[in-house]
Nucleic acid binder design. Structure first.
Length: 420
RNA sequence: CGGGGUGUAGUGUAACGGCUAACAUUCCUGUUUUGGGAACAGGCGACUCCGGGUUCGAAUCCCGGCGCCCCGACCA
């Protein structure tokens, strides 16, 4: 993509109404635009990152048997009354509105009811199970206080998978697979080294739920990490008995602030019972379906990456979720320089390498460099009088101080190699 | 929902109760420039969040509302 066609511009100044690092950098670099507190629009660069994250999650979910679908944002009163979660006294984050005919509807703040209600139509026999439907969708919560930029919003985009299993052991088997899939996801997204599977309160059907917590001062949770074992305990269940039951030692645990980037938990029959979601087993006996829930907030995940991986010049995107792989900068207005850059741009595109081409005329070198650092694309390639005189193009990783001159062929090789 | 802070061109800031609300940046015109947010010249852009009040006079003081940020509570 040519940067001259990208309508967003970077800002030199931080927004006055944002304190959090993720919002500051994402707004300055032109990834998101603030609509109101806790509500952000995703601009072209930001959407590309979200889509990258989405694809990583999709791959992992499909890999463990997930089936993608899409539940509606609109939810009917009747369905939610079954689980006793329609009442504003019970759930205070509802956004509700009315249809022209007076019927009440709410905007999804979670998906258990929607899935339970839909699956009831299709699940009759043990042969119909297990199933693992999931979706990516926007979720709405009327938070009394949204905060921390895109880490806690009133509208957010998430992935939610629900498991429908015949019994506990089948459920547990999938649950373990989901744990591994989640680890893979956070590893691929580039924050695996800071993300810990964390034991948290589990509700009435299991002792614990499992949160995936990424260590950062921007987080709102307190967790106790055992760095060697790679697991942690959420403050909400932190006590001597729990520490012991998990085989941990108090003296090994380190207190950290962290942000919950994902969570999985066992629902048991909490929803299958009120929805009468049953199947007939091999003996013709009716049994309740055992459910589990598996969520990840993609915006929060994107914000967490920014919190954790930026420097004083801007964002440092991991290659896996960067909006583009290469930022190609042309300096100078001589025809041969421009042509050379244009050629390289076309070559990279032909090879399937995602490139943002800063073809903007009349901008100083310093401004292009500053923009490039702020936007944070992993590889920067400069075409200039100097680079051509030195025999090619200057390539530098976002994380490196100095670039080196390489030929076009070598450059393409390197980029293709890292493309996997 | 309690507490604190704050609201002025697109953005970031300034302005004692008193001149036409200033500066920087963005943007537009032109000249010059091109390896770390270039230089010069000119120009556009503001019902100072909204509503009331005090005053000869309010961006500035007072009251109410709303927005935004932070702390806390809440968080399937």
């Amino acid at each position: 993509m040519k940067q001259s066609k990208l309508f967003t511009k970077t800002k030199k100044e931080s927004p006055a109404d944002e304190v959090s690092l993720n919002a500051e950098l994402l707004i300055r670099a032109g990834f998101i635009s603030k609509e109101m507190a806790g509500v952000y629009s995703y601009l072209p660069l930001g959407l590309r990152v979200v889509k990258k994250i989405e694809n990583i999650i999709r791959e992992e979910m499909d890999n463990i048997g997930g089936t993608e679908m899409r539940t509606s944002v609109f939810q009917t009163k009747e369905v939610w009354e079954k689980s006793n979660r329609w009442d504003d006294e019970v759930v205070d984050v509802w956004f509700k509105t009315k249809l022209k005919n007076g019927g009440e509807i709410g905007l999804s703040f979670t998906n258990e009811e929607a899935y339970s209600d839909i699956l009831k139509q299709y699940i009759n026999s043990y042969k119909d199970l297990p199933v693992y439907p999931y979706d990516f969708k926007s979720i709405f919560r009327n938070e009394t206080r949204s905060k921390s930029g895109i880490l806690r919003g009133r509208e957010f985009y998430w992935k939610a998978l629900y498991s429908f299993s015949r019994d506990e052991s089948e459920h547990n088997e999938f649950y373990e697979k989901a744990k591994q899939a989640y680890k893979n996801i956070f590893q691929k997204v580039g924050i695996g080294h800071l993300t810990y599977m964390t034991f948290a309160s589990g509700g009435s059907f299991s002792k614990f739920s499992h949160e995936f917590q990424t260590i950062t001062g921007a987080g709102e949770d307190l967790i106790y990490v055992d760095p060697n074992k790679g697991i942690a305990i959420n403050k909400e269940v932190y006590n001597d008995e729990v520490i012991e039951s998990l085989g941990l030692k108090k003296e090994d645990l380190v207190e950290n602030k962290a942000v919950e980037v994902g969570n999985i938990f066992s629902l048991g029959t909490k929803f299958s019972a009120p929805f009468d979601l049953k199947y007939k087993d091999e003996n013709g006996e009716e049994k309740l379906v055992i459910m589990g829930s598996y969520g990840i907030g993609l915006g929060r995940l994107m914000g967490t990456v920014v919190e954790v991986l930026s420097d004083d010049k801007g964002i440092i995107w991991p290659e896996s979720i960067a909006p583009f792989k290469v930022h190609l900068l042309v300096l100078g207005s001589d025809e041969n320089i421009k042509n050379s850059a244009e050629d390289l741009y076309n070559n990279l595109k032909e090879k399937g390498i995602e490139v943002l081409f800063d073809d903007r005329a009349d901008l100083s070198a310093g401004e292009k460099f500053a923009d490039s650092d702020l936007i944070g694309i992993p590889y920067r390639v400069v075409v200039s009088k100097r680079s051509l005189a030195d025999g090619g193009f200057e390539m530098k990783k976002r994380t490196e101080q100095n670039g080196k001159i390489i030929t076009k062929e070598k450059l393409i090789d390197v980029l293709l190699e890292t493309n996997r």
